[in-house]
Computed example of a mutant assay.
Amino acid sequence: MTDFATFAQKIIDELTKEGRKHTAETRKYSANRLLMFMANKPTPMDKWDELFVKDYETWLKAQGLSASTTAYYLSQLCVFYKQAVKRGNIQEQDIFRLVNKTPSPKPAVQQFPSIAELRYLQTLNLNKSQDFARDMFLFSLYARGMNYVDMAYLKKSNVKDGMLTYISHTSDNNPAVTIKWDKAMQQIADKYTSDTEYMFPIITKEGNADETEQIKRSRHNAVYNLRSIGKQYKFSVSPTIAMTKDLWRKIMDEVSVSEVI
């Protein structure tokens, strides 16, 4: 019986010792994703079959990942599987026959500001426009990658009993999303007052046919100001609202249980 977590860590350690740090990080990130999938039902590698792989593909898509990114994670799963076969840990079977594990095109490795830069961002003395852009970026990150449209429509009434609950406006038939309302989110919300029911001054005239344009204009300004912050303060990568969901996932993937409890 081959435990995946133990096997994956061995592969990652070997790559690190060989100086292949980038490959080791890629394997670590991919392994963490699979371990999240198996959190409630750990499955030894010798018990993997085509239904297991198909379920993993379905789970990846349910996380909102694109087809190419889903295929990328499946290809990484295949790498671990082939390594286990090569080392004699398991016998090879055609367990990938029901899925597409060939990324086309192969997704570029997304770059993010470092944790140190994110902390530095919080300390900067910025002008009013830059400050608002920073707040929207940080709030989106704290809210697990909430997109700008949903932040625009976020209402004060969405917060109740320490929880934030909202339904995304980006597509139809979205389930309600509920996340913990924490101190950092409250501090940002407290900075803004509005005569409307909305939490942030993005839509300033309710019931106006121009709401979409108000959101587009505000988002454009936020994008511009975040880019200017990145350039002015020499960030390795300028922060963007578009990256917050993947950035939140990356941070969560890198946090170990011992750092949380």
Rank of each mutant, 00 (worst) to 15 (best):
W181P: 01
D182K: 15
K183G: 06
A184F: 11
Q186G: 14
Q187D: 13
Q187K: 15
Q187W: 10
Q187Y: 12
Q187E: 14
Q187A: 14
I188T: 09
A189V: 08
D190Q: 14
D190V: 07
K191M: 04
Y192L: 04
Y192E: 02
Y192I: 01
T193I: 09
T193K: 15
T193P: 03
T193G: 14
T193H: 15
T193Q: 15
S194M: 11
D195A: 13
D195K: 15
T196I: 07
E197I: 11
Y198R: 05
M199H: 02
F200G: 08
F200Y: 10
P201K: 13
P201A: 11
I203Q: 03
I203D: 00
I203H: 01
T204A: 02
T204C: 09
T204V: 13
K205A: 11
K205R: 14
E206K: 03
E206Y: 07
E206I: 01
E206A: 09
G207A: 01
N208V: 06
A209P: 06
A209D: 15
A209Q: 14
D210V: 01
D210I: 01
D210Q: 06
E211Y: 08
E211C: 06
E211T: 02
T212H: 10
E213M: 13
E213D: 11
E213A: 13
E213Q: 12
E213S: 10
Q214A: 06
Q214K: 10
K216H: 13
K216R: 15
K216L: 08
K216I: 04
K216E: 12
R217W: 03
S218R: 07
S218M: 07
S218K: 05
S218A: 13
S218H: 08
R219V: 00
R219T: 00
R219W: 03
R219L: 05
R219P: 00
H220F: 14
H220I: 01
H220A: 12
N221Y: 11
N221H: 11
N221K: 12
A222I: 02
A222V: 12
A222E: 00
V223S: 14
V223P: 00
Y224M: 11
Y224N: 12
Y224A: 10
N225G: 09
N225W: 12
L226W: 09
R227Y: 08
R227L: 10
R227I: 01
I229D: 02
I229Q: 03
I229G: 00
G230R: 06
K231I: 09
K231R: 07
K231D: 13
K231H: 09
Q232K: 09
Q232M: 05
Q232T: 10
Y233I: 00
Y233C: 01
Y233T: 02
Y233P: 00
Y233N: 00
K234H: 02
K234V: 02
K234R: 04
K234E: 04
K234Q: 05
F235L: 00
F235Q: 03
F235E: 03
F235G: 02
S236H: 08
S236C: 06
V237F: 13
V237M: 12
S238D: 07
S238Q: 11
S238K: 07
P239G: 00
T240W: 14
T240S: 15
I241E: 06
A242C: 08
M243W: 05
M243N: 01
T244V: 10
T244A: 07
